[in-house]
Design a binder for these strands. Sequence first.
RNA 1: GGAGUUGGCCAGAUCGUCGCCGCUGUUAUCGUUUACGCUGACAGGGGAGGAAAGUCCGGGCUUCAACAGGGCAGGGUGCCAGGUAACGCCUGGGUAGCGCGAGCUAACGACAAGUGCAGCAGAGAGGAGACCGCCCGGCAAUUUAUUGUCGGGUAAGGGUGAAAGGGUGCGGUAAGAGCGCACCGGCCAGUUAGUAAUAACUUGGUGCAGGGUAAACUCCACCCGAAGCAAGACCAAAUAGGCUUCCUGAGGUAUGGCCCAUACUGGAAGCGGGUAGGUCGCUUGAGCCUGUGAGUGAUUGCAGGCCUAGACGAAUGACGAUUCAACGACAGAACCCGGCUUAUAGGCCAACUCCAACC
RNA 2: CGGUAUGUAGCGCAGCUUGGUAGCGCACUGCUCUGGGGGAGCAGGGGUCGAAGGUUCGAAUCCUUUCAUACCGA
Length: 117
Amino acid sequence: MNYSFSRELRLLTPEDFQPVFKNAVPAVSPHLTLLARKNTLDHPRIGMAIPKKHIKHAVGRNRIRRIVREQFRHQQHQLPAIDIVVIAKAGIADLSNQEINKILDKLWRKLVQRCNG
RNA sequence: GGAGUUGGCCAGAUCGUCGCCGCUGUUAUCGUUUACGCUGACAGGGGAGGAAAGUCCGGGCUUCAACAGGGCAGGGUGCCAGGUAACGCCUGGGUAGCGCGAGCUAACGACAAGUGCAGCAGAGAGGAGACCGCCCGGCAAUUUAUUGUCGGGUAAGGGUGAAAGGGUGCGGUAAGAGCGCACCGGCCAGUUAGUAAUAACUUGGUGCAGGGUAAACUCCACCCGAAGCAAGACCAAAUAGGCUUCCUGAGGUAUGGCCCAUACUGGAAGCGGGUAGGUCGCUUGAGCCUGUGAGUGAUUGCAGGCCUAGACGAAUGACGAUUCAACGACAGAACCCGGCUUAUAGGCCAACUCCAACC
RNA sequence: CGGUAUGUAGCGCAGCUUGGUAGCGCACUGCUCUGGGGGAGCAGGGGUCGAAGGUUCGAAUCCUUUCAUACCGA
């Protein structure tokens, strides 16, 4: 099983992001929002929106981004072919790595259920 | 042992698994000018900071404008000397202030070139000023020593203010006053020491003329072209438009009654500008480490060694284990350097100071 | 990443050049006019001048540092 995280698994340009925002299946928690949409490829892709307004320092933004990426890397084969956008909200900077991992775990499952059903 | 000052250093470590971004080597597929390019695999090795931050200064580099220069405007700096590519930085020294001390702090040129400013209070705010007071004289009253009034003298005292035109003492005087004298201070000049700032003086002169404010205008000395890697350089689709040449020398449309005439319109090739996109700029540099010489020091000479991130939606992480007194503060490179400023848990080293105790 | 501007009463703005009293409009409170409302008039309250230092006798104003917010450049 290949757990690599290459460029094809990422949303890069505004053209990649816009369709997800327009027509999305949401999964919400107080600290994170996930938006998903089926794509035409045979693998999932992920993009992130971490506003400077909510997480002030670059170190904090890097931490959120790295945790989300790591989770996605491990979960990619459980996920269907969808484009996901992860949006960070205020207050997430106060959570520990384990807490964020738990929240993400829940939200992945929600998304899989809603996209299949 | 306690309290403290200064300078410097570190910024968790080790192992395993799964991943990310460059580099080097080997190799496979494909494309072609047999050497490159694209994609993939394997191996090796590298991968955030002392502030990467704020963007407050100084440079390199690039383009533009000038042309190697001089001046004005505008801006900056401001004790002296040195260091440096340069600086508003650093080092050493001076002066002033703070601390018992080691030490620390300071935009620290000129108000004796000119102009301005100082509300309220106060008699007076700058070649000042009689409100109270003090003293003298005239007149009047009377309790014969004071009161009232008028005219003078006076800056010792009170009072106002942030600030009132040297200080203390003695003499002097009607009362006072640098009015005179002594000491202290100031100013001008001289001598000596020092590169200088400045300091010292049993030196000479001067009764003191010259209050504060320049982070007020200003004066003096020195410095500064502007914008910034989204700078800029190169390659270069599609579409529209531009220029040149050729083809046709004809047709169509408009003006007009018609001809002539004028304007617009076709196809092909080439050229230049240039958008999307791509490549370069992009990391070897006023570089780092070690030794040694010069210097109080900042710094620098010489010798040897080293290569230490270069992304482009943007790379260092996650999980587990062991360990440490501590689950580890502040915090993430984006063209690159030198500083400053701000944030910062804990620990280590060196030198020095004060207090207590012991010898 | 680079480059600019702005922070003053609940809101929107003056005052900063040339330092001594913080002012204007809307809003708020009370009173009057009206039977009541609206409206008008009169009176009044409310501001750490974004924060911290410095210069000055005295700082919203001058200087330095710092924190926010907004805008511009692909």
